[in-house]
Design a protein around this nucleic acid. Structure first.
Lengths: 195, 195
DNA sequence: CACAAAATATACAGACCTGTCTATTTTCTT
DNA sequence: AAGAAAATAGACAGGTCTGTATATTTTGTG
């Protein structure tokens, strides 16, 4: 059984448990033994599914990236066909997220913070998520008729990450509305049809 | 000798060494022994100046907060008396910072990421810095004639933190310019005199 | 010089860390 | 039911962590 094998019940359970503890307390702060005790799984089972703690972490980040984007797109699609509404739905999704009881910031920002060296595999896994989200934003900006979708999406990306930081620090959802209001204003400016 | 005593050569040297290693590798990643070996200082000297590693960390964050704001204000003041130029100088300062060879993001964001629990003393020390910077931004926005300085400063704060995250992930200074351009547009919108 | 304060080296405690090894038991498939 | 695959318990290695204790040496000051 390769260490890069995919889905199995035990493997999924380990990842879910580790994810919860990493997100709650920090990655470096949580040891393997803690995860195993919480999951009720033997140590060798973990090391049969993952080559190391680092591979477990990266597998979790990649899974979370997919789930994150699926959740985001679900809310965007629920906003209907109006391109502007779809774009601004990103910030409503943000507000829902911030309102989550267990909200403790963005695991990708936090992982990149804990592993600050840009060449580190964990840092790069976190970075890949940022790029993927940026691509979504660019598509939404283009659909909304922005003259320069990349530039607008970049600005939105800054607002979103800034809002996540602020929401974590203040433990409030307000930054989502601040970001949304600002984003709406920028969208107006970036639409030539609005002139 | 109280553990909260202030400046002494050994104490300063320990803080400078610890700061450099914490910023380079992460707070949890750097042990006391590593700091002591790098600084060439005995362990008891550290524990005579600081009650614990946690107190050392907090002392460093508080010192960095002061230095950070002094550096920022120096560039703002160097921009002269024009309120708009002073406000936008914040983003020039940001670009200079990002261009630093050792740039690895914002230590306050990273400390809050490593100690995600909002009630943790380290998390709160990081948060206090954010509030202090926000106050500076609000003053600058008010001086620039914004109708709602608090709201504009909040938007700027999101852009700044987002830019820091992006600059760390991409290892480029571009996010500073993206943030600056966006900020300039928002400033125009927020000035009634520009209508 | 003499005394006091600061810093030193060194050892130690007790806990935690990741990862490995072995032998046994459970589970699944045929 | 039988054999193969997966998971188990538990010990263990070798290192690291924070913080303490002690005895000695350096440093600065009157």
């Amino acid at each position: 059984m390769s260490a890069t094998a995919s889905s199995s019940p035990k493997r999924d359970h380990l990842m879910a448990t580790a994810w919860r503890l990493f997100y709650r307390d920090g990655i470096r702060a949580v040891g393997i033994d803690t995860i195993l005790a919480e999951a009720g799984v033997a140590k060798m089972t973990l090391y049969n599914h993952f080559a190391s703690k680092e591979e477990l972490i990266i597998a979790i980040l990649e899974t979370r990236d997919v789930e994150f984007r699926e959740s985001l797109m679900a809310q965007v699609n629920a906003a209907g066909h109006n391109p502007e509404k779809r774009l601004l739905a990103v910030f409503d999704w943000l507000e829902n997220w911030f309102a989550t009881e267990s909200f403790k910031g963005c695991v990708f920002i936090r992982a990149a913070s804990e592993y600050p060296e840009p060449t580190h595999p964990i840092h790069q896994a976190a970075w890949r998520h940022k790029i993927a989200v940026q691509a979504i934003l660019t598509d939404l900006c283009a659909a909304a008729g922005a003259t320069d979708p990349v530039t607008l999406a970049t600005a939105f990306s800054l607002l979103i990450d800034g809002a996540v930081i602020a929401a974590h620090a203040t433990q409030t959802t307000n930054p989502a509305r601040s970001a949304r209001t600002t984003a709406a204003a920028l969208l107006q400016l970036a639409q030539p049809s609005a002139a």
